[in-house]
């Protein structure tokens, strides 16, 4: 290629051309060599691997050496790698390195504005507690009740959307089990949690529930593996923070089925067992009445 020969391997000599075209045209159109593009791609892939590795290594180290690695380290490492990757993309793929400096100024100014947004928000959030501590009482965790959710269903005003979701799921589980319909996996996991909560509260478990869970060890596995991946790494951070959450009251050890199912109940004749179950009275389906 004719023009490929004359300037290979050297930067654009902007000043030399500026004399001919005036100060406004000091830059040239750079054709980035294929080798540079491939190098950039390989670098980006490496950094992607690195960020995944860092996140997973952190969990492994924390588990093996029983370290408590603070959360901000995880965030700092991940975002630093992301920043390096973005700078590489902007400098080479987006050609800012070879470009009119005005474009770099626009980009830098935008990033500056972004840090203002984040910085002032953090100053506000960080100091808000001292001023408005009392306002925390007004917050309903999990969304505001008293709204009509998707499907036109009305959420009671004293119940959050998240809590309402759980109550609706519990009702659905009860209905599906009484109809004999198999539950989708995530509802099966919820059923294990319901049983856990009942056991933790030392209440009898409905026989139909136990009968449904019999022979489905994978549900127990899924339910009890669930909160584990982070409680392992940062164990103590969570236990206390979750005092209000149903996850804490959960029985962590695996439940053996025989102790759940009263003798003879699993084989037929589950009607009396259901009547004996708690929370099946009129309107009292919530297994967790607090």
């Amino acid at each position: 290629m004719a023009h490929a020969a004359h300037a290979d391997g050297s930067q654009a000599h902007g000043s030399g051309h500026a004399a001919g075209h005036g100060a406004g045209h000091a830059h040239e159109h750079v054709i980035i060599p294929m080798r540079t593009l491939v190098t950039v791609l390989v670098l980006l892939m490496t950094f992607t691997g690195l960020t995944v590795l860092a996140a997973n290594l952190e969990i492994i180290f924390a588990t093996i050496f029983e370290l408590k690695i603070p959360q901000y380290i995880n965030v700092l490492v991940a975002l630093s790698i992301a920043a390096v990757k973005s700078i590489i993309v902007a400098a080479y793929f987006m050609q800012l390195r070879y470009d009119n400096p005005l474009n770099t100024m626009i980009a830098t100014f935008t990033i500056l504005v972004l840090t203002f947004f984040l910085g002032f928000t953090m100053i506000d959030l960080g100091s808000r507690g001292t001023l408005y501590e009392y306002k925390a009482e007004q917050v309903i965790p999990g969304g505001i009740g008293g709204v009509a959710i998707a499907g036109g269903v009305q959420v009671p005003s004293n119940v959050s959307i998240a809590q309402f979701a759980r109550e609706q799921a519990d009702k659905k589980i009860e209905q599906m089990i009484s109809e004999g319909t198999p539950l989708p996996k995530f509802l099966g996991v919820r059923l294990v949690h319901i049983v856990d909560e009942l056991l933790a509260a030392k209440k009898p478990v409905p026989v139909a529930y136990a009968a449904y869970l019999a022979g489905k060890p994978e549900l127990f596995k899924a339910a009890h593996a669930h909160g584990k991946d982070h409680t392992d790494a940062h164990g103590d951070d969570y236990g206390s923070a979750h005092s209000s959450s149903p996850d804490v009251s959960r029985v962590k050890t695996g439940i053996t089925l025989p102790e759940l199912v009263p003798a003879g109940a699993a084989s037929g004749q589950d009607a009396p067992g259901r009547d004996a179950g708690p929370g099946t009275g009129p309107g009292g389906d919530d297994p967790d009445p607090k």
Binding site: P141, G142, G143, A148, A150, A165, A169, V189, R190, D247
Partner: peptide
């Protein structure tokens, strides 16, 4: 049902603010 706001219907949350 892992959906935002009023479409949320996933029961297995740990923290009530998961929506």
């Amino acid at each position: 049902g892992k959906l935002p706001g009023i479409w949320y219907s996933y029961p297995n949350w740990v923290d009530a603010n998961e929506p």
